[in-house]
Write a protein that binds this DNA or RNA. Structure first.
Lengths: 297, 297
DNA sequence: CACTATTTGTCCGTATGTATG
DNA sequence: TCATACATACGGACAAATAGT
């Protein structure tokens, strides 16, 4: 039959098999061995915080006890307690002796998504409505990764710029761009902090034709975290994109990092009949980017 | 020329004016105080590591001296030394007395991406080439979030299934699906662990028409981490999708979690002329999902 | 009213790691 | 190298509030 490994389950009535035999001797949930030296209690705090925001404890808002966390994360009770105390100090939960820890946090009903209409990563529109701060601007030899993306020789000179983009004064994205040196020399650092890179390239005569991008996730290191006003060790959305001109020559390689609570990638799909079977097709006018109003913090 | 400052001060007000051309290293990190949890030496280590990877010291591979770092980051020499020792212990640099610290690092060959050709989130193809394990299968009242996604009344009965999908025996994705009860009753838990949910729905007569999905990032809690053989607190890519039939009625709400080192979302874009300005357009046949062979870790 | 189990609050001591001077 | 301070993390122990039997 179906084996249910429901450890943390939202409080539900019924169908509650009391202690279904499989008392997992797991005990080896590894925390934070991924190179980040974030304190244990803070890692647990981040996980719990996200679960709260996802409404995992929405029913009666009851969080696991300190003892539960002790067993599940393999830490001492003091450490588990500190994680919950940190939640309480931010007003996300209320802790009462002998009564447990309950969520006292109301997600603004609907996480209001104010759409920036237009196409996917509408850089120009975004650029006009936002501000950017230039953190770094330097010419350096291309690393292998950058060289491969831009299809140039490794070691060839490229321009690297690191910017933070703000929306309504709130840090929004962390951008690292690489441009072949010859192109980069055609604009200045000052222009780069005022205009989107893409519009600068088009002004330089580049006829932008296509782009390919990869979306993934990564952890915030302390440098990026500071830029985005986020916690080190929190999850970020990462988009890497190579932009090419009409001849297919790469003109820009960009890596963008976003706080997931302030930016999400949304798209619509249609189910169409393919050659052999039905498949998904991306709706053209529907792929767009949305900005979520920051709930708090 | 803008100074190389990959370091940012904290939300300090004012002083928006960088000292252009000034020799003053505008870079002491605002830390050491209470706000940051990451050790100083490790923060510096991360910054240096990234600079090395970007080829900042590519010429002769010479890193700043301990004294340089001491001044630049505003820390003691011991702390600067530890950061460089950490680099050395990882084999990134070589330290020689009175000779300084040099980069001895060759980036590994690019992580090979073996594409699974086909359309965006080609569920059926994936379902046929992978295995799935059913972790949970239960009927329960819809939470507010689920009810809103499926456009049903909060508390109406829905079927929830939690599965882990494996690719070549390696845990690949963690799927939580919600289906209206009436639809869910038409197939069994056993079928769900063998066939993709979408094909089961189509077998039941559902004429799948469209879907809208949101891509974001989140942290792995201990439960998901165990399922995906990852660390709790690591970053995961998260895709939430509402699938609708031809009439626009939601038939499925799914939340999928992926390890970023095993799954990435890739798409191609074209630059087309819009009504007012040029914009990006999603290439239809190019949006696809790729699986990356684990490069390391 | 005990009695018990939970759960949180508080305290102790100890060990290790971090950072400065 | 040493001394000092502070933060982190552990284990143990006890007390206090709450709920159920």
């Amino acid at each position: 039959m179906v084996q249910i490994a429901s450890i943390q389950r939202a409080p539900e009535m019924g169908s509650e098999t009391p202690h279904a035999g499989s008392n997992e001797p797991q005990s080896s949930i590894q925390l934070g061995s991924q190179g980040l030296k974030t304190p244990l209690y803070h890692q647990i705090y981040l996980i719990l915080k996200e679960q709260i925001k996802d409404g995992v404890y929405g029913a009666d808002g009851r969080l696991p006890s300190e003892q539960d966390l002790t067993e599940r994360f393999g830490v001492s009770r003091i450490t588990a307690k500190r994680a919950m105390d940190e939640l309480a100090s931010e007003g996300l939960v209320v802790r009462e002796r002998a009564r447990g820890t309950r969520v006292i946090y109301q997600p603004p009903s609907a996480p209001i998504a104010s759409s920036i209409e237009g196409m996917l990563e509408n850089l120009i529109a975004m650029g006009l409505e936002t501000t950017a701060k230039l953190l770094d601007f330097v010419y350096l030899p291309a690393s292998d990764t950058v060289a491969e993306a831009l299809e140039i020789e490794s070691g060839a000179e490229v321009q690297r710029a690191v910017r933070v983009r703000y929306l309504d004064g709130v840090p929004f994205s962390h951008l690292t761009t690489y441009v072949p040196s010859a192109l980069g020399r055609q604009f200045t650092a000052e222009e780069l902090s005022s205009f989107p890179l893409l519009s600068l390239l088009e002004r330089c005569g580049v006829d932008v034709g296509s782009a390919s991008q990869t979306i993934t996730a990564t952890l915030a290191d302390h440098v990026v975290a500071q830029c985005l006003d986020a916690d080190a060790g929190s999850a970020l959305m990462k988009i890497s994109r190579v932009v090419r001109d009409q001849t297919g020559t790469p003109v820009e390689f960009i890596t963008a990092l976003y706080r997931p609570d302030r930016y999400q990638y949304r798209m619509s799909l249609s189910r169409v009949q393919g050659e052999t079977a039905k498949r998904w097709s991306a709706d053209d006018n529907a792929a767009r980017t949305d900005t979520l109003k920051a709930a708090q913090t």
